[in-house]
């Protein structure tokens, strides 16, 4: 194991303990979005109830209307949150809310973290798009794969912020601190279990938490699970160079090879799905 991996492992232990104890300051998610997500866990929820919650946050109203009006080009524009939610439907609303929450985390006032966050967010969006498309082909849980793709690296900016804070303390005490490149690598080593713990702390849907937690290894017993698609998409996106930090090319190639057989994905279909992926992710981000 590399020294970065050792540091990351120790860091992970500390961070997980702090998340569990509630002593790690996590980014605050928009209250309206989390409440609405909580309501949407009920399959019989009325959109009116969701609308009442989102209506409290002008930003959420604006985002909902924008998404609804972009969803159907040419149709008459919607102007109320009720109309917007009706047009979007439950699945799209859930994705939109998760995206809003995740996007918030990948923003930082610190310029160093912000630079890395922009690349990480692009990576996450690309993984989400690809995981959703691959899962859809097999009739699997495409939207769960999409949301898990968005959130699979959510621990990284959180850990980066924690490291930055620790760096400030270390500097104040004149303690030697790691090189910037090293801490980027350490952040990259942080596993998805931390992302899952954060998602759980945010009380995101359990299926999403479980999916993020399962990304660490392929689940051979459930070949078409959303977690397998996210893991496979993550490797493919790294192979495409849409990533921040160094990539173990051999490990990624092995993941792709295993994933192709596990999920039975046709190579030509895969090529078509990954073509222009970075531009698709950038376009998606520019629409945010």
């Amino acid at each position: 194991m590399s020294s970065d991996a050792h540091v990351a492992q120790e860091l992970e232990r500390v961070v997980l303990a702090r998340i569990e104890a509630g002593s790690l300051s996590l980014p605050v998610l928009p209250a309206a979005a989390t409440s609405a997500l909580s309501l949407l866990r009920d399959p019989d929820v009325s959109l009116r109830a969701v609308s009442a919650v989102l209506d409290r946050d002008p930003m959420m109203v604006m985002l909902t209307l924008r998404a609804a009006n972009a969803a159907v080009l040419g149709a008459s524009p919607v102007s109320t949150i009720d109309q917007g939610l009706t047009r979007l439907g439950v699945v799209k609303i859930r994705s939109l809310l998760t995206e809003v929450c995740a996007r918030r985390v990948f923003q930082s006032r610190d310029p160093r973290i912000q630079r890395a966050c922009e690349g990480l967010w692009e990576h996450s969006v690309a993984v989400a798009i690809l995981a959703r498309d691959l899962a859809a082909l097999s009739g699997s849980e495409a939207e769960v794969a999409y949301m898990a793709g968005l959130l699979h690296d959510v621990a990284k900016p959180v850990v980066a912020a924690y490291l930055l804070e620790t760096e400030r303390v270390a500097t104040m005490r004149n303690v030697r601190w790691m090189h910037a490149d090293t801490w980027i690598e350490v952040v990259n080593e942080v596993s998805h279990s931390v992302s899952a713990a954060i998602a759980q702390r945010w009380e995101l849907p359990e299926v999403l938490v479980q999916t993020i937690r399962s990304i660490g290894e392929f689940d051979i017993s459930r070949r078409n699970s959303a977690g397998n698609y996210v893991r496979f998409a993550n490797a493919l996106v790294k192979q495409q160079g849409i990533y921040v930090g160094t990539v173990d090319a051999d490990a990624v190639a092995a993941l792709v090879m295993v994933g192709r057989s596990l999920l039975g994905i046709d190579e030509e279909v895969l090529q078509r799905m990954t073509a222009d992926l970075q531009n698709r992710a950038r376009k998606r981000i520019s629409n945010d």
């Binding site: 969803a71 699945v91 799209k92 498309d133 859809a136 082909l137 279909v269 078509r272 799905m273 698709r280």
Partner: peptide
């Protein structure tokens, strides 16, 4: 409940 652009991309892939 279907994102038409995403569906189109998926259909084109197969």
């Amino acid at each position: 409940d279907v994102d038409s652009a995403s569906l189109l991309g998926q259909l084109r892939a197969v």
